[in-house]
Design a protein around this nucleic acid. Structure first.
Ligand SMILES: [Zn+2]
Ligand SMILES: [Zn+2]
Ligand SMILES: [Zn+2]
Ligand SMILES: [Zn+2]
Lengths: 168, 168
DNA sequence: TTAAAACCTTTGAGTCGCTACAAGGTCAAG
DNA sequence: CTTGACCTTGTAGCGACTCAAAGGTTTTAA
């Protein structure tokens, strides 16, 4: 009964913020943030000042979350949204943006593989637990500075532990 | 002459902040930030209130920058510095920290490889420049939400473009 | 000698993409 | 009528810096 009612509501064309969040695998605060940032248009409001969303909003938010899951920046996403909004234009720039972003990812993979190599080298300097004074790892880290050639934007190793789960 | 004088100065045991920065491949603002964060001890001061550093500072900063180049967090680095400071302790925890961090990197590599696969799939949806309305990429991005299983801390694709060059 | 350039200082704000909180308003169920 | 789930705004915080303002000091060179 309650389920049926909920189902009916779900098949309606409007919803409030937390249902939109659930359907888009996002969360309410992120949606308000996107609105502030101009990625989502201002929602219409109910009498009690609640944001009211339509399927169009859901589609746009889904697009954005999809892009974020591919580690694009909000800037990159803004560009893509502009093309979505002007369907008569040539999409060559979309392709270019995607090629660039693929390169961002590929480059970052290369950097991290080099990092892994260096870290395994370092780890090999102290196979057993000994006194810290004799630890090859601590010694190795005191040594020279290896170059870090990073010109990238794909996020870090320590980054998204508690975030990006979709729900809040 | 100026070079010789500079060389003499360089072989002295103390220096000001920008020389320390240069020698450690860092920059002055980062050094002040590390001091605020307690990663570097407070420097002694000259009569005119300038920070004065010794080789010990240079070594500690070199250690920190080396760790950062390996994408460790400042938290991870703090732990390592504690072990450096107590040489009688067993270094097993150092090894464990490094193993964990290697896993952070390996996991991030895996995530990015999956990302690359998805992005290349998407790119294949629009080999040529056509009208945005018919662009397979924009269409693909409007589709379902792929899971993003990130539990990591190694930074992103778009991150370090203008940073981490060492100089300011 | 003096003026400009190159340092140094502190403080505070900005970056990115959220996330979390506080303090309050609204609404349906029991 | 109260509880609790939802909604609102505004603000602050995360990590690891980076930059700018507004001023003090030191070095260089005309
Ligand atoms: Zn990118
Ligand atoms: Zn060891
Ligand atoms: Zn780590
Ligand atoms: Zn296209």
């Amino acid at each position: 009964m309650a389920e049926l009612a909920a189902l009916n509501e779900r098949s309606e064309t409007t919803m409030k913020i937390s249902e939109l969040a659930r359907l888009a695998g996002s969360n309410a605060e992120t949606i308000r943030y996107y609105e502030r940032e101009g990625l989502l248009p201002k929602a219409s409001r109910s009498e009690s000042n609640y944001r009211i969303y339509s399927v169009a909003h859901l589609e746009r938010l889904t697009f954005i979350r999809h892009c974020r899951n591919l580690d694009m920046t909000l800037g990159e996403i803004r560009t893509l949204l502009r093309f979505k909004a002007s369907p008569e234009e040539n999409c060559g720039e979309v392709n270019r943006l995607l090629d660039d972003h693929i390169e961002h990812v590929v480059r970052r993979i290369g950097e991290l593989q080099e990092l892994e190599r260096q870290l395994r080298d370092l780890r090999g300097c102290c196979p057993d637990g000994r006194q810290a004074a004799a630890c090859g790892i601590l010694e190795g880290l005191s040594q020279p500075l290896l170059e870090k050639a990073s010109g990238n934007h794909v996020p870090g190793v320590h980054e998204s532990f508690a975030s990006n789960t979709g729900k809040s």
